[in-house]
Amino acid sequence: MTNRHRGLTEQAADAAIDSACRLLRLPTIRSQFTDLAEAAARDQMTYRGFLAELLMAECDDRARRRSERRIKAAAFPRDKALRTFDFTANPNVDPAIVHTLAKCDWVKKGLPLCLIGDSGTGKSHLLIALGTEAAMAGHRVRYVLATKLVNELVEAADEKMLAKTIARYGRVDLLCIDELGYMELDRRGAELLFQVLTEREEKASVAIASNEAFSGWTKTFTDPRLCAAIVDRLTFGGNIIETGTDSYRLAQTRARTDQSTHARV
């Protein structure tokens, strides 16, 4: 005897569900309802239980897609996750502090984060990984190299688009600025960057990674007063993580070279 739902054959019911899911924009239920219905029948699930499974599957998938969109919008140059950060290779970085930061309370409060250390010590990895955690938590995030940001601001100022550009960067919940301190900025560039930081102060978070200790920032921001003001904006009420001077990336490369040398001997 053919199963019927309100007078529909099972085939017609499937077609009606497919059509309704398209109309209501429920792609996950549309793709999974057959498997979930069969599992519900096997497990003798109640109607309420089956409905809950369907709706939760749709909600979970929507949350995943939103996270993927936010991560893509952040424009990270590469994928970096906290689970792949080697805390044993860099004892300067406290895993407890980093995992607390991964909860993103500092982003909700609009506080800054500074990652300071030499090349190869994991600054950019942590910057991208914590930015990714923030995006997954529902925050709007944007990653940019310091030089690229300053060049964009200078071009915007020349084209009378500065206010619009600063506002665009002001709209994100977390602005991640990488490689701050790698090159000297002229006074105009430094002042424009200061405007972005001022626009965000105590309203939205800024996270930076720099290869220079704060004492060396006068090489990047040559005006001492402006330098002091920028350091103040980036440190007040925030977190500072010093990743040290020993490049674990270099150490890993040397270890691999040693292993291959021993293997050939």
Rank of each mutant, 00 (worst) to 15 (best):
T2D: 15
N3K: 13
H5F: 15
G7R: 12
L8R: 12
E10H: 07
A15H: 15
I17F: 10
L24T: 06
L24W: 07
A37D: 11
A37V: 08
A37L: 14
E38H: 07
A39Y: 02
A40L: 01
Y47P: 02
L51H: 09
L54E: 09
L55C: 03
M56I: 14
M56F: 05
D61G: 02
D61P: 01
D61R: 10
A63Y: 05
R64D: 01
R64C: 00
S67T: 07
S67L: 13
E68F: 05
E68L: 03
R69L: 12
R70C: 02
K72W: 02
A74R: 00
A74H: 00
D79H: 10
K80Y: 10
A81I: 02
A81G: 03
R83C: 04
T84G: 04
F85W: 12
F85L: 10
F87W: 06
T88F: 11
A89M: 09
P95N: 06
A96P: 05
A96D: 11
I97L: 12
K103S: 03
K108E: 10
G110Q: 09
L111H: 01
C114Q: 15
I116H: 07
S119L: 15
T121E: 06
G122D: 08
S124F: 04
S124Q: 11
L126K: 05
L127I: 11
G131E: 13
A134C: 11
A135S: 06
M136F: 03
G138R: 06
G138T: 07
V141S: 01
A146K: 00
A146W: 00
N151P: 00
V154N: 07
A156L: 03
A157C: 14
D158R: 02
E159Y: 07
K160L: 09
A163E: 12
K164A: 15
Y169P: 00
L175N: 01
E179I: 05
L180H: 00
G181E: 06
Y182P: 08
L192Y: 01
T198C: 04
T198M: 03
E201H: 00
E202G: 01
V206A: 08
E212C: 09
T218N: 03
P224D: 01
P224F: 01
R225T: 06
L226P: 02
D232L: 06
D232P: 11
R233S: 05
T235M: 15
F236Y: 15
I241S: 11
I241H: 09
G244M: 01
T245D: 04
T245C: 10
Y248A: 04
A251P: 10
R256L: 14
D258C: 08
T261D: 06
V265C: 04
